[in-house]
Structure formats: structure tokens, C-alpha cells
Computed example of a mutant assay.
Amino acid sequence: MNTDIHIAIVLGTRPEIIKLSPVIRECERRDLPYTLIHTGQHYSDELDSVFFDQLELPEPDYHLDVGSDSHGAQTGKMLAEIEQALLDVEPDVALVQGDTNSVLAGAIAASKLPVEIGHVEAGLRSFDREMPEETNRVVTDHVADYLFAPTDTSADNLRDEGFDESRIHVTGNTVVDAVHQHRTLATEKSTILDDLDLTPREYALLTAHRAENVDDRARFADLLNGVERISTELGVNIVYPIHPRARNRLDEFGLDVPSCIELIEPQDYLDFLDLEQAATVILTDSGGVQEEACILGVPCVTLRDSTERPETIDVGANRLVGIDPDAIRNGAVEMADVATDWENPFGDGNASKRILTALCQSPADDQQVIQ
């Protein structure tokens, strides 16, 4: 077992901070040297630095402050600056997670250097090539040396694309590690339900931020219309922690928000986790929220035309409805009545241990073990 390996962890968004936090903690538990390279892809304090403080994570060694821009400009700037950080640090492995522009830039930068690449959450596929995230995840998988697939379904996607079996490691998803580590803390520390005068199971939670939904006026209007119908049908108000992108589009399009939808500021992780676990149903276009809802035992309705988390649908935790208002209402009514004792398909909460064990594996080791 190689314990001298140096890992560069590249991250840049709220989901990456959350999902890589168990990996960071496991590095510290094993006393493995690591460097945190933060691209700054999320550029508001609510969506970014507060997570490091709240989750008691160390400050990044590099903060690139890239911020928002077009896909090409943002990715290009990150690529150049990540490359320089990797040249400075000379790590053995660069670890990226998910499907953001930070992931793509980190993987491409490392692929041109004598640095191996580990992709956490490899093999996810929506099979929708119009999604920028699909391009990011596919390209990252194809340059990565270690493909950390969260489920057997993800691993099968990689096999179908011809990846060598030696590169594929089914680890479970680090989101399970993160939820297990933080849900009790959220219950103990968060006051968000009292602050918003919310009663558990008497409200629905909405997240909508993807470009295909909020950058298109007609789609955004249909989404809000469908959510309003849910409120009428189920007799619940809707809580919507609104992403800055979505709020800007509401103003730009002149869209009226139905009175049943309460817009609130983006929440820190523990408050958002508490909002999730107390909701009667979650309405989302976020892949990570689909996972968290499934793990927490909260019914989910996905406001997209495709999902790279089909396991949530397979176990009965999720409905894929698109943005047709009637389909949104019908999906939520169905999910409000489902039994929530489905099996969690994303693993046992030891994904971060399996990832680091694989990275530390020497050629003489015969098998991977959880340590």
C-alpha cells in the first residue's frame, strides 16, 4: 500500500465541496498529503466559501477566483491556472468529481502532465448530448486513469464504451458518506424550519437552476405553472432557495412568481439538508438533489427530460416528468403517496475509503479493502 501518494483535489462548486468533503477527511485520517485547488466556479459566498467554514474543511491551498463566464472562457481560464498549480505542486494524482467545467478543466490540465487522474462519479450518463454536463463527464472519463463509478449501472455504462476493467472501481457515491456525516449535525444545528415557520411534511422544496430550464422563458414559465398546480393539488406551499442565475432570469423575463412559492436566498449545506429531509416532496433539476432525496427517504420529482441518476427511478424514489405543467402536477401527486422504504442504490457510506484505497494500491496488492 502506497502511503506516500500526493493528491491534488480540484473543486469549484457547492456540490463538489460537499461530495469531496468525506475524501478530504479520509486523507486527513490516513495522513495522506493533499492539495486543495479551488477554481472559484461558484462566485457567491452563499454557494461557496461558507461551505468550507460550516463543514470544518481546511482553506484551499489555491483559490483561482475564476467566477462566471461563458463555457469556453471559464473553462479556458481554469485550464491555464489549474495547469500552473499542478506544475507547482507536482502531485501524483489529480482528483475531480462530477461534471462541471472545473472537472473538465482539471482533467484536461492533468492529462497533459505526468499526473494521473481520478474521476469521482464516473460513468454517469444522461444520454443527452445537448447538456454541457454530459460533454464534461464523457470527456473526463476518457482521459481518467481511475474511474470511480458510484453504482453498477455507471460501471456498465463505462464497459459499454469500451473502458478497460482495470480502470473501473465501483465505490458507491461519496454523497452517501456526506449525508451520513452531516444529517444529524443538520438536525442539531440548523434552525431553518423555525426561521421560515415551516412544519415538517407540510411543504414542498423546489430547486431549479439548470440553463435548459431557467434560460428559456417558456420552459421557466411552464415549470412555475406546474409547481403552482402542485401547491393547489397537495395543499402545500413551495419553498424555493433560488440560485442567482434563476433570480436574474426571473427579472429579465418579467415572470411573475405564484404566491404559493416562497423565494428564499441560497442556503448553506446544513440548512438545505434540513429543508430536504423535512419536505413532503422535492422538486428539482439537480442531479445531486435527486441523490440526496433518495438517500434521505424523501419522494422526488425531477423537472428535466433526462437524468443521469436512473437508479433513483428504478428504486421508486423519483419520477422524471420534464416541465409540462400537468406532468409536473401528476408526478408530484403520485410521489406524495409512495412508500419511502426504498433501498438506497448509492452505497454504504464508505465510498471515500474505497477511493483512497484504490489510489494507494500498489501493484503487489491483490485486492481492495476498506481501511
Rank of each mutant, 00 (worst) to 15 (best):
G106L: 01
G106S: 00
G106K: 02
G106H: 06
A107L: 00
A107G: 05
I108Y: 15
I108V: 15
I108P: 05
A109Q: 08
A109L: 04
A110V: 02
A110Q: 01
K112E: 10
K112D: 04
K112R: 14
K112L: 08
L113G: 01
L113M: 10
L113K: 01
L113D: 04
P114G: 02
P114K: 05
V115R: 03
V115G: 06
E116R: 13
E116G: 14
E116I: 00
I117Q: 02
G118L: 02
V120Q: 04
V120G: 08
V120C: 09
V120H: 06
E121A: 13
A122P: 08
L124H: 10
L124M: 15
L124S: 14
S126F: 05
F127I: 06
F127L: 12
F127G: 06
D128W: 01
D128P: 13
D128E: 11
R129F: 15
E130I: 04
E130Y: 12
E130T: 15
P132D: 09
P132G: 07
P132M: 08
P132L: 09
E133I: 06
E133L: 07
E134I: 14
T135D: 06
N136F: 14
N136K: 10
R137S: 13
R137M: 10
R137T: 14
R137I: 13
R137G: 10
V138T: 15
V138F: 13
V139R: 09
T140A: 13
T140Q: 09
D141L: 03
D141M: 07
H142F: 09
A144L: 14
A144I: 09
L147C: 11
L147N: 05
F148Y: 10
F148H: 03
A149I: 07
A149H: 05
A149G: 09
P150N: 06
T151M: 10
D152K: 10
D152W: 07
T153W: 05
S154E: 02
D156I: 08
N157R: 02
N157P: 04
N157V: 05
N157F: 03
L158C: 09
L158K: 05
R159N: 01
R159K: 13
D160H: 15
E161D: 09
G162W: 07
G162C: 06
G162L: 07
G162T: 11
F163S: 06
F163E: 10
D164E: 13
D164L: 08
E165L: 07
E165W: 02
S166W: 06
S166K: 13
R167M: 10
R167L: 08
R167H: 08
I168K: 05
H169P: 00
V170P: 01
T171K: 00
T171V: 02
G172E: 08
G172F: 07
G172K: 04
G172N: 12
V176Q: 06
D177F: 05
A178H: 00
V179D: 07
H180C: 03
Q181Y: 00
H182S: 08
R183I: 12
R183S: 11
T184W: 02
L185Y: 00
L185A: 14
A186G: 13
A186P: 11
T187K: 06
T187I: 09
T187M: 06
E188R: 04
K189Y: 03
K189W: 02
K189T: 11
S190V: 03
S190R: 12
T191S: 10
T191V: 05
I192L: 03
